[in-house]
Computed example of a mutant assay.
Amino acid sequence: MSKQKIYKLLIGTNNRGKLKEIKSLLPKKIKIHSTSEFNLKSPVENGKTFKENSLIKSKYFSKKTGLICLADDSGLEIDFLGKSPGIYSARWGGRHGDFNKAIRRVYRELNKKDKNWKKKKIKARFICALSISNLNKKIACVLGKVEGYISNEPKGKNGFGYDPIFIPLKKRKTFGEMEPSQKYKMDHRYQAFKKIRKFL
């Protein structure tokens, strides 16, 4: 395990929502760089798991910039749909990552499976894999998750991605209806962060 202190860190994502959330969780002493500063496109994510895809990104961006990189791979698993969309969560939004389109597809797939799905509790979870790499070397890779269920309709304009249709356990509001400060203290990214903090 590396004991070196990290003072400069590249966040390996081109997703502005993720960048904002990760920045809010990082210690203030760390100078943060984003992939947009280097005009880097994301690599092909051909891993079979969230952890594999996270590592593909952190190693790729670290090698491209020479900076230590923290990358996230996250998504939504819906039990009723055989854990789909899972690692393909972003891809359900099509080439341009349109999450309104992705959310419509979730509802379409649920309807195909069972016309009365709205009368049931559709269990789901958000999963986040966070990894830190220095060039080709993995420093850490952890997994965080938050359990919940699917809302009958999209609610709320906050957050990003599938936030408007995900209600965490023991809550009544979707992530999309919550204030970011409330969501950031409980979601999958926060759970993963608690595990990776000691490496920073």
Rank of each mutant, 00 (worst) to 15 (best):
K157L: 12
K157C: 03
I103W: 01
I165Y: 05
R197Q: 11
K123G: 02
P43E: 15
G156A: 01
F38L: 14
I6T: 08
R95Q: 11
G17F: 14
E45Q: 05
K195Y: 10
L25W: 04
G82K: 13
E153Y: 15
N15E: 10
A140K: 13
N152G: 03
S54C: 14
S84T: 02
E52N: 10
K123N: 09
G47H: 01
K137N: 14
K3T: 11
K29T: 14
K185M: 11
A90N: 10
D163R: 12
L169F: 06
S34M: 09
T35Y: 04
D163H: 13
G148S: 02
R95K: 15
I78N: 00
L25E: 00
S89D: 03
E77P: 04
K57C: 08
N100V: 09
R16Y: 06
T13M: 08
L19M: 13
N15M: 05
A90C: 10
K29Y: 15
D79M: 04
N15P: 00
C69M: 08
K119I: 00
I78S: 01
K171H: 14
D114F: 00
C141Y: 01
Y60T: 03
K185N: 11
I132H: 10
S84C: 03
R197C: 07
N39T: 09
S58F: 04
S151M: 05
L40I: 09
I78Q: 02
N111E: 15
N100Y: 13
K115C: 01
R108Y: 15
R197H: 08
K171P: 01
N136H: 06
K8H: 14
K63M: 12
N53C: 07
K157S: 11
I22R: 02
L70V: 04
K155W: 00
I132Y: 12
L10G: 01
I87C: 04
L55E: 13
F166N: 03
